[in-house]
Simulated assay, not measured.
Amino acid sequence: MEMKKRISLELRNRNPAEVVALVVDNCRSSDGEVESLTDEYTGLEILSMVNVGLTSLSKLPSLPKLRKLEVSDNAISGGLDALAEKCPNLTYLNLSGNKIKELSSVEVLQNLKNLKSLDLYSCEVSTLDDYREGVFELLPQLTYLDGYDQEDNEVPDSEADNDDDDEAGPPGDEDEEDEDDEEGSEGDEDEVGLSYLMKEGIQDEEDDGDYVEEDEEEEEEEEEDGGLCLVSFKPDCRMKH
């Protein structure tokens, strides 16, 4: 899709001055310049034009409130001097994946007094031996280059995200604990069930024992009764003879 059409669609019937963030990634610029973006976008703070075929930013309109500019994966080799005049409040600039080869190409960014973070990752300039030292020397206002400061400390936002992940713990820990709890509960239920059955079995055996004892007592009583009958019968028989 062409950049002109994409920007028109992104407006969504709004007034350009009302647009705060504009993303036109992966569309195409017919002449390698910024197209259809005008000075009317006075409230724009975030602009993303990743992989749109840009070769220059010379036609970028005046965007006084722009803070963040994403133009990675284009073919920009120069023309960065226009940024200081048109985007004076820029604090973050991503130029990674462009055709910037020399430190002198980024020297013009020293006029962006509010620039705190610059990305030049995958640009040819980043392969130079004195790359990091040179950029920080040319741009004293800069705090982060490619996501790290001069002492190789990562951008705080990334550190905060990592801290949150660490506090949350490895994925699945909570599930494992829940599973352990469930298994423990099931085990307790099994133990209760077994103990109950064992008690029932013991009770049955005791009851059976009681029945056996009662039966034996009854048999003994019957034998005793039978003996008495025999004893009482025999004298009667003798008397008849």
Rank of each mutant, 00 (worst) to 15 (best):
K5Y: 03
E10C: 14
G201L: 06
V19C: 06
V212K: 02
D208G: 04
E102D: 14
E167R: 13
L230S: 06
Y92E: 07
L37Q: 10
R14I: 01
I202H: 13
H241T: 07
K199G: 15
R238V: 04
S62G: 03
D181E: 15
G79S: 12
E224L: 05
L54D: 13
D25K: 09
E176H: 07
L66M: 02
P64S: 13
G209L: 02
S58Q: 12
G79C: 05
V50N: 14
G78I: 01
E124R: 07
T91M: 05
D25Q: 11
D207I: 02
A75P: 00
D175S: 15
K68R: 12
E182L: 11
M49P: 12
G97C: 10
E213K: 09
S105G: 05
N94V: 02
T127I: 02
E102M: 05
G227L: 13
E186S: 13
P156G: 07
E107G: 05
D208I: 03
L66K: 01
Y92W: 08
D164H: 07
E133L: 03
M49I: 13
E179R: 15
L54N: 12
E214F: 01
L11N: 06
L145G: 09
Y196D: 10
N153I: 09
V34M: 06
N74Y: 04
T42R: 14
L230V: 13
L90S: 11
G201Y: 05
S96P: 02
C87P: 01
D225P: 00
G187W: 03
S185P: 00
E40G: 08
L69F: 12
V71W: 04
E182H: 09
K86I: 04
D208W: 01
L69E: 09
D81S: 14
N162F: 09
E70W: 12
Y131N: 09
Y131A: 06
G78L: 00
E214I: 01
Y92M: 06
R6D: 08
H241S: 12
L230F: 06
G32A: 07
S117T: 15
D188S: 13
K113R: 15
L90R: 10
E85P: 00
L90G: 14
S117G: 07
N89M: 06
K116S: 13
E102H: 14
D178M: 13
E18R: 10
V106E: 09
D204Q: 11
L44K: 11
K68P: 01
L9C: 06
D204S: 13
D236S: 11
G147Y: 05
E216L: 04
L54R: 05
Y211D: 14
